[in-house]
């Protein structure tokens, strides 16, 4: 199972972000990792949660604009150059990273990074081939 990410369109309106987080809180959904991409007048909130389907459902019900998409989660050695080496692998394989963000928590000794590459399957293949720990959805949601 691919790791699912929830993307949320947020218009530039006071309190809109906290409204979204409120919906998740009320549904008892814990956020494992998040990132916000913003422009001058709108933003996209990206989330990793333990139950993405449920999160999508409750957010949609509260009239948010939501999209579920696949991402890759990798375990990266928690030391200088750990992430750089993973990215170099992808660059060498001619795979583009659209965006990435990190988990707060670790998986064992490794830091967890969420990557969105132009092709998820090629990205995964390249990473696995080079021996990078690619986490399953179960690993990630359980963090």
């Amino acid at each position: 199972m691919e790791v699912k990410q929830i993307s949320l369109f947020l218009e530039n309106k006071k309190g809109r972000l906290s409204e979204a987080l409120d919906v998740l809180a009320k549904a008892d959904i814990n956020i494992r990792a998040l990132s916000i991409a913003d422009t001058s007048d709108f933003g996209i909130l990206r989330l990793i949660v333990p139950d993405p389907d449920k999160a999508k459902k409750v957010l949609t019900k509260s009239s948010f604009t939501v999209r579920e998409s696949d991402v890759i989660a990798v375990g990266v050695s928690d030391k200088p150059g750990g992430l750089a080496s993973v990215l170099k692998l992808l660059t060498d394989a001619d795979i583009n990273v659209e965006y990435m963000y990190a988990f707060v928590e670790k998986s064992g000794e490794k830091a967890v990074v969420v990557l969105r590459t132009d092709s998820i399957s090629n990205g995964k293949k390249a990473l696995k081939k080079a021996g990078v720990t690619v986490l399953s959805s179960r690993d990630v949601y359980g963090l």
Binding site: T39, F42, I44, T65, R67, S69, E98
Partner: peptide, 9 residues
């Protein structure tokens, strides 16, 4: 909506 910033921009 596909979650991509550049598409919206």
């Amino acid at each position: 909506f596909d979650g991509k910033v550049d598409h919206l921009v």
